[in-house]
């Protein structure tokens, strides 16, 4: 089973229930992607990319979304390297005579979900609810900050609702998101955090 954008939107609509009609799908999708970005401070995506080091060069720019380099390797041996200011700096020229393709494994921000409903969410199934909680929190936050939306909400729900109640709901969902965000961390993520604090690198470098 793989969680798709449609699955997440369906779960959001289940929680919003009667008031789901107050939100456009595009708006919910935008909040899901925002939720992915908000995940990055505690859980980064494992990514890789190839960068080309020019002949005679001893540095190369890293991908824009790179937060922390885990490994860098090429077909041949590479000089030792360190990461600084968005670049990979080698201790020596990589190859005097020809350009070298270097594969970089790194932790980076999450990519937005694909624009179609059927593509898989980049999170594992057990992690994906974090986006549901964030999206519902944002939906209630919007109701709480827009008087017109608030009146529509009160009409749909057919009961007397104080603005404070909606603000409280937004805060509750936000708290659910914060808790789920912390639980979404994998064992490897914790290992990476440990390496980062200790300043060590994975084996092989």
């Amino acid at each position: 089973m793989t969680t798709t954008r449609e699955d997440i939107r369906d779960r959001v609509n289940m929680y919003l229930d009667d008031i789901s009609t107050l939100f456009e799908s595009a708006e919910l999708d935008a909040w899901m992607n925002e939720g992915l970005r908000r995940l990055s401070p505690v859980l980064l995506a494992e990514k890789n990319d190839q960068v080309e080091v020019a002949a005679g060069a001893d540095s190369v720019s890293l991908p824009d979304d790179c937060v922390y380099v885990l490994r860098a390797y090429a077909d041949g041996e590479l000089p030792s390297w360190r990461e600084h200011g968005g670049a990979l700096l080698f201790s020596d020229v990589v190859n005097e005579g020809a350009a070298t393709t270097v594969t970089v494994e790194y932790l980076g921000g999450w990519d937005a979900m694909a624009a179609d409903d059927a593509s898989p969410c980049p999170l594992a199934d057990w992690q994906a609810d974090v986006l549901v909680f964030y999206t519902v929190a944002r939906a209630f936050r919007r109701l709480a900050t827009n008087r017109a939306d608030y009146r529509r909400y009160a009409t749909v729900m057919n009961n007397q609702v104080d603005l404070e109640d909606i603000e409280r709901l937004a805060a509750t969902w936000q708290a659910d998101f914060e808790a789920a965000r912390l639980e979404a961390r994998t064992r490897r993520q914790l290992l990476y955090e440990g390496q980062r604090v200790a300043g060590s690198r994975p084996e092989g470098e």
């Binding site: 779960r11 594992a124 199934d125 057990w126 992690q127 994906a128 609810d129 639980e183 979404a184």
Partner: peptide
Amino acid sequence: GEAVRRLGP
């Protein structure tokens, strides 16, 4: 279903 997923961590 959500409770099953919450076992995951």
